[in-house]
């Protein structure tokens, strides 16, 4: 518990974490505001009758960038090397002399990231859905019991994505590559989505499977994966990656 308290304290005092939090709330909310207002004009023009069932959810799939930043900086900050003039130290040495058990350290960090990201996902879901309902007004899709597991899926997806980003960064010990690759994949060029054009197996990649937890209609959907299956597939990816990361982390020199 002490190790977890220390990790929570680290996250709270790191400016990059607050940037991640801001991005996590703003990105989906702003995109939702833009899409919802264009949907609204389509509906009022009579071109469509009602907003799609994925209004808000699609945006939350994009907004996961905040979770990615959180997962990456939580561990890359440990390896950030001070300038030579300041002695060239790294925080990881302090961390591991304070909590010498590598596994305990990693578990505490994983827990802190998961908790912070779950809180972030709940806030982001609230604001994004709020924006959709305010902008669309009466045209907004009705929220019901059905949305509870879907929003639970959003939280799961965000936490898992943060942990995937975390696991990759444990291996790279550097923020740049995981940040660039993961953020590009969710926004600019969705490589994993393009891969589904080549092989249906790509639908079982972590992000493609994970979004099924809450997105009902994917573009050019060829494979049917239930929300539960999608969640389990992503869970498996996260578990495997974290085990690899833990093995590497406990074996190598800090």
């Amino acid at each position: 518990m002490r190790a977890l308290a220390a990790e929570a304290s680290k996250l709270a005092s790191l400016p990059a974490v607050w940037i991640a939090m801001a991005a996590g709330v703003l990105v989906p909310s702003v995109i939702a505001a833009i899409t919802a207002s264009s949907t609204r004009s389509t509906v009022t023009r009579g071109a469509a009758t009602v907003a799609g069932a994925d209004a808000g959810y699609q945006e939350l799939a994009f907004g996961v960038v905040g979770a990615i930043i959180l997962g990456v900086v939580a561990i890359s900050s440990e390896y950030f090397t001070e300038s030579a003039e300041s002695g060239g130290g790294r925080q990881i040495t302090t961390s591991l002399t304070a909590v010498p058990s590598r596994l305990r350290f990693l578990l505490a960090k994983i827990s802190a990231v998961a908790i912070a990201c779950a809180v972030l996902a709940i806030i982001a879901s609230g604001t994004t859905m709020g924006v959709v309902h305010v902008v669309l007004g009466e045209h907004a899709p009705a929220m019901g019991v059905d949305d509870v597991p879907r929003l639970g899926g959003v939280v799961c997806y965000w936490v898992y994505t943060a942990l995937l980003a975390f696991g990759i960064t444990v291996l790279t010990r550097h923020a740049v590559i995981p940040l660039a690759v993961l953020i590009a994949n969710t926004s600019v060029v969705t490589v994993t989505y393009l891969l589904t054009k080549i092989t249906p197996l790509a639908n079982y990649l972590p992000d493609m499977a994970g979004v099924r937890m809450f997105v009902r209609r994917l573009p050019d959907d060829t494979v049917e994966i239930s929300p539960l299956t999608g969640g389990l597939v992503m869970t498996a990816w996260v578990a495997v990656l974290l085990v690899i990361a833990a093995v590497a982390f406990t074996r190598r020199d800090a």
């Binding site: 005092s13 900050s77 440990e78 001070e82 002695g87 060239g88 130290g89 790294r90 040495t93 002399t97």
Partner: peptide, 13 residues
Amino acid sequence: AMLDGSGAHRART
């Protein structure tokens, strides 16, 4: 223990 530098992240106080 004290090793290289401060052992702290530069963005923290």
